[in-house]
Write a protein that binds this DNA or RNA. Sequence first.
DNA 1: TTAATTTATTATACGCGTATAATAAATATA
DNA 2: TATATTTATTATACGCGTATAATAAATTAA
Lengths: 212, 212
Amino acid sequence: MAKPSDMKAAKEKMSRGRPAMSAAKRDEMRRRIADAAHRLFKADGYSKVSMRRIAAEVGCTPMALYNYYDSKIDILRTLWDSVFDTLFAEIAAFGSDTDKTAYLTRISSAYVNYWLRNEDHYRLVFMAEGVTQPDVSIFLDGRKSLERFAIFAEALIDANDAPMDSDQLKRKLDLLICLLHGIAHNQLTISGYPWTAADMLIEDGVKAIIGG
Amino acid sequence: MAKPSDMKAAKEKMSRGRPAMSAAKRDEMRRRIADAAHRLFKADGYSKVSMRRIAAEVGCTPMALYNYYDSKIDILRTLWDSVFDTLFAEIAAFGSDTDKTAYLTRISSAYVNYWLRNEDHYRLVFMAEGVTQPDVSIFLDGRKSLERFAIFAEALIDANDAPMDSDQLKRKLDLLICLLHGIAHNQLTISGYPWTAADMLIEDGVKAIIGG
DNA sequence: TTAATTTATTATACGCGTATAATAAATATA
DNA sequence: TATATTTATTATACGCGTATAATAAATTAA
């Protein structure tokens, strides 16, 4: 009983014209572009790699890239995303703990040590040349980032001496993240200086923040 | 007895060729460029203003600017410098205090309140679109910046409960600066939210940092 | 098949920062 | 004065990110 139009509707093909690329094809092309960009960025740095070069590496024209990414920075943000996916998956793998302070310290340590073990990722995210400040802050202020850092917010609430309202929490969270990045940044970029071990700094810092 | 060559040496004019512009002339031209850039940056933002437009405002060709500044970002850094000159002159005007914690709190408050009173300066320094991260960190890591923030370092040493070694000091200083910028940033950019008064946040933060 | 329509790709062009080369201006020397 | 030399300015050109327009590819409807 099905009319041809129904059959087409079943195939979700109502309109004529060239059909849109399958999701799989799109994703594959996006990954090919991201992989090429990652290789080039790692070798030469973000600012030195042009869209023309990425296109050449992929084997298309520069403007074809814009079918898959909005802009050059959008490609970099995709790489950032996958880095954070890996990092926070690692952190989420820890079960929570009866000693709440120890738990906060442990995930803080995991966070910093991920950056220390993956210096190229740290540089890709936090030290990419040619990235404008708003590019970074849009990323770090974005909803996804907030959700990711929520694990730190919850651990802070549990570990803190006294109950906190939301802006006390925010202040402490910001302080903590600043501290963790500062530790990683100093270790990675001022490597000639004999820094106190990251884990000791983290222990001190966490104590100061939850105690104050 | 002076030979003509000696007379010329006295005038510091030994070589022939077009003489270099006088320091006064150079400085005047640098200021004309900086003023024009400041006007345009304030109106349209750093990234939207081109060297071609600055040149048109000044009344020269784009490349003539490069006799006075190394690059576009060099012009912006000059503006940053003058902003920090004003700000730290204000802070230095406070005499030190018998209550060391009160002094640290007061100069921290002066620092934050300068940014709150001069939002356009804050945006020029910390929120200029099109400024790359290395541009900023080179500036903030520079010797001149360190010297400027030394007043906070000294106040931290005086106010801190216990003696500190240099990396404890550095950590606390970084924490303090992060906090002060965070307060200013939040007040200025999330103005819809009823933030606790900056001075209260500063008081709490300073206590936590020197106590921890 | 042919025309219509939608998607994907390519071609072209713009303004950007600025490197490089050519030119103009200003001086000392011959 | 004419020439050499140094400085200041301008002209030209390059590769950049990407907006826009033209084209190619893939499909349905006539």
